[in-house]
C-alpha cells in the first residue's frame, strides 16, 4: 500500500514538474493573470459596487476559460508525450501497475490545476480587495459599512472550480486512454465538456417531453454526463449580501462531493479502457 502511494506520488510529482517547466503552462498563467488584472483598467464604471461584480465576473470567467483549456490540453499533452516519447514504456516496464501510472498522471495535472486556481483566485481576491477598499471610501453608502465581497466564498468557490476542472481532467484522461491522437482527445474532450455544460437543458426538459422514446433518450443522456452547471455558484458565493436567495450551507459540499465522485468514476473508466491498450 505504502509502495503504491509512493509510486503514484512520484509519477504525479514528475508530471507536475513536466507541466510547470513547459512554456505552454507559463504562457497560459501569464495570460490569465494579465486578463484578471486588466479588468481593472478596461473602463472606470461609476457604479460603485457594480464594478466589483464586473471584476469578479470577469476574473471567474477567465479562471473557467483558461482553466478548462489547461485541464484539457495539459492532460492530453502530458499523456501523449509519455506514449510518443516511449517514456510510458520505461515506466510500465518497471513494477508499476497501469492504474498507478494513470492515477499518477491525473494527480500531476490535478496538482497543476490546484496551483492554477489558487493563484488566479488569489490574484482576483487581491484585486477585489484593493478595489473594494477604494470604492468603500468613495461610495460608503452603497456598502453599508461592510464588505460586499465574501472572500471566504471566493476561496470556497475556487475549490469547487478546481474540482470541476478535475472532472474535466479525468474526462480527458478517459478519452486519451482509448484515442490515438492528441488532437482527437482534445477535440472530443472539449465536446464532452460542452455537453456537460448543456446537459442541464436536457435534465430540466425531460419531464415535459411527451414522446416516451425521446423522453427515455433524454433521460439517459442526462444521466451519462455530469452536470457542469452545478458549479456555477460564483455569484452567490462571492456576493452573499446581494443575492436574493442564499445557498444553503450544505450545498457547496454536495456540489464538491458530486465533483469528487465523477473524478473517481472517470479515472476509473480511464484505467479500465487503458488496461489492454497496446503502447
Amino acid at each position: 500500500m505504502n509502495g503504491i502511494c509512493h509510486r503514484i506520488l512520484t509519477i504525479g510529482r514528475n508530471t507536475f514538474l513536466d507541466a510547470v517547466r513547459q512554456k505552454f503552462f507559463n504562457a497560459l498563467v501569464i495570460l490569465s493573470v494579465a486578463l484578471i488584472v486588466s479588468s481593472r483598467f478596461f473602463r472606470q464604471f461609476d457604479f460603485g459596487s457594480g464594478e466589483l461584480k464586473f471584476i469578479a465576473d470577469f476574473g471567474l470567467g477567465a479562471i473557467l476559460l483558461f482553466g478548462s483549456i489547461l485541464a484539457v490540453v495539459a492532460t492530453a499533452q502530458l499523456f501523449y508525450s509519455e506514449i510518443e516519447n516511449r517514456t510510458a514504456l520505461t515506466i510500465l516496464a518497471k513494477p508499476v501497475h497501469r492504474w498507478e501510472f494513470l492515477a499518477g498522471k491525473f494527480l500531476g495535472v490535478f496538482l497543476l490545476l490546484a496551483v492554477f486556481t489558487a493563484l488566479m483566485a488569489g490574484i482576483l481576491g487581491i484585486m477585489l480587495y484593493w478595489r473594494e477598499s477604494s470604492l468603500m471610501d468613495r461610495y460608503g453608502d452603497q456598502f453599508g459599512g461592510q464588505r460586499l465581497v465574501s472572500y471566504a466564498g471566493l476561496a470556497g468557490f475556487a475549490v469547487l472550480q478546481w474540482l470541476k476542472l478535475g472532472v474535466l481532467c479525468a474526462i480527458t484522461l478517459f478519452v486519451s486512454s482509448f484515442s490515438n491522437t492528441n488532437l482527437y482527445s482534445v477535440v472530443v474532450s472539449f465536446f464532452v465538456m460542452i455537453i456537460c455544460q448543456l446537459q442541464y437543458i436536457a435534465r430540466d426538459s425531460w419531464e415535459s417531453i411527451g414522446n416516451p422514446a425521446l423522453k427515455g433518450l433524454v433521460w439517459g443522456l442526462s444521466l451519462l454526463f455530469p452536470n457542469f452547471q452545478m458549479f456555477n455558484v460564483g455569484d452567490v458565493m462571492l456576493f452573499p449580501h446581494d443575492a436574493t436567495e442564499q445557498l444553503s450551507a450544505g450545498t457547496p459540499w454536495m456540489i464538491g462531493g458530486y465533483g469528487v465522485v465523477y473524478i473517481f468514476v472517470f479515472v476509473g473508466l480511464a484505467v479500465f479502457a487503458f488496461r489492454r491498450r497496446e503502447i
Binding site: L223, L224, M230, L247, Y258, F272
Partner: peptide, 21 residues
Amino acid sequence: ALLLIGLIVSPLQRKAWGEVR
C-alpha cells in the same frame, strides 16, 4: 458505469442543482 453512477448521484444532484438553478 456512467449510467449507474448517474442514477446513484441523481438524488444528490437533483437537490443541489435545484437550488443552484
